[in-house]
C-alpha cells in the first residue's frame, strides 16, 4: 500500500481540505451511510457468525471442550493438517522464489504466459483441482503410470494432500515475492560484484535477505490457505480417521452426525491456528513498512 497522500497546503485539494475541514474530519459526504452499511454488512456476515462459534464453544465445560478438541482422532487430524500445510508451504516458498526470479529477471519466449498461468490456482475451483489431481496420479493415470511403479503414490495418500496444497499455495508466494524482486535495484548487485562477491554470495548475502520478508509472508499465506482447504482434498485423500483425515473433514464429520459442540471445539482450534498465522502476517507487514522508511 503505497499511499500517495496529498501533501496539505501544496495541492489544490490539500489547501481546500485545510480550509473546509478540521484536522481529521473530511468535508466529503457519505460518512454516516457508509459506516452504517459497512458495520451492518460485517456484523451480519462476519461478527455474528464468529460470536455464534465462540458462544457455542463456551457452552462446553473445559473438560468437555478438551475431550472434543483434543481427542486422539482430533490430534491426528491436526498433525496431518498442520504438517501437510507446512510442508506444502515450504515447497511453495522454494518454487515460488524460482518462478518469481525467472519471470522478473529473465526475458524468454512464453514469459508472459508463464506469468499469467501462475494465477490459475486462484481462479480454478478447488473441486476441479481435486478432481484432476485425483486421476492424474492413480496407477493408470497420466503421471501415475510412471510414478506408481516407483512407489510414489500421488493420489489417495498423504503425499496427495501435500501435492494439491502445493498447487493451491504457489501463486501466494510468487505474487508476494515478485513485486519486491522487481523493485530491487541493480546497482547493489553491481557493488557486491565489484567488491569481489561471487554470484552465489551476492544471491545469499544481498538478494535473499531483501526478499526474505516477502518469503515469510508468502509462506504464511500459503500455509493459512492450506490449513483451511477442504474442496480439493476430499477428492485426493482416502479420508480415513487417524490416517488421512484432515481437520476440516473431521469438523464436517462431527457436524453431519449432529455433534455440533464437538465440531465447534475442533473449529476453534483450527481457527486459532489460522488467526495466529494471519496476525503473524500483519506483524510482518507492519515491520516491513517500518523498515521501508
Amino acid at each position: 500500500m503505497s499511499a500517495a497522500k496529498p501533501s496539505p497546503g501544496r495541492s489544490l485539494g490539500g489547501t481546500l481540505r485545510q480550509l473546509v475541514s478540521g484536522k481529521h474530519r473530511s468535508p466529503l459526504p457519505g460518512f454516516g451511510p457508509g459506516l452504517v452499511v459497512t458495520i451492518s454488512w460485517l456484523t451480519v456476515m462476519l461478527f455474528v457468525p464468529l460470536i455464534a462459534l465462540i458462544a457455542k464453544s463456551t457452552s462446553l465445560t473445559p473438560a468437555e471442550f478438551l475431550a472434543a478438541a483434543w481427542s486422539e482422532r482430533a490430534r491426528a487430524a491436526y498433525t496431518l493438517t498442520f504438517g501437510a500445510a507446512a510442508i506444502a508451504a515450504v515447497v511453495d516458498v522454494i518454487l515460488g522464489l524460482l518462478f518469481a526470479w525467472v519471470i522478473v529477471r529473465y526475458r524468454f519466449p512464453g514469459r508472459q504466459m508463464l506469468d499469467a498461468i501462475v494465477d490459475l490456482p486462484f481462479a480454478l475451483p478447488t473441486a476441479v483441482a481435486g478432481l484432476v489431481y485425483s486421476s492424474l496420479y492413480v496407477k493408470n493415470g497420466w503421471f501415475g503410470q510412471f510414478l506408481v511403479p516407483l512407489g510414489i503414490e500421488g493420489a489417495y495418500s498423504r503425499f496427495a494432500i501435500v501435492l494439491v496444497l502445493i498447487f493451491l499455495g504457489l501463486p501466494f508466494v510468487v505474487r508476494t515475492v515478485q513485486p519486491l524482486l522487481s523493485s530491487l535495484e541493480g546497482d547493489i548487485e553491481e557493488a557486491a560484484a565489484s567488491l569481489g562477491a561471487s554470484r552465489w554470495q551476492t544471491f545469499t548475502r544481498v538478494i535473499l535477505p531483501s526478499v526474505m520478508p516477502a518469503l515469510y509472508t508468502g509462506f504464511a499465506l500459503a500455509f493459512a490457505r492450506g490449513l483451511g482447504e477442504y474442496g480439493s482434498i476430499i477428492f485426493v485423500s482416502t479420508n480415513i480417521p487417524y490416517k488421512s483425515e484432515i481437520a476440516p473433514m473431521l469438523i464436517y464429520d462431527r457436524l453431519e452426525s449432529y455433534h455440533y459442540e464437538e465440531a465447534t471445539a475442533i473449529a476453534v482450534v483450527l481457527l486459532a491456528g489460522s488467526i495466529t498465522t494471519l496476525m503473524f502476517i500483519n506483524w510482518l507487514e507492519a515491520r516491513n513498512r517500518r523498515y521501508a522508511r
Binding site: 464468529l50 483451511g228 473449529a267
Partner: peptide
Amino acid sequence: FAVSPVVAGLM
C-alpha cells in the same frame, strides 16, 4: 481469509 470454509459453513 483466515477462516476455513468448512468453519464458515459451520458458523
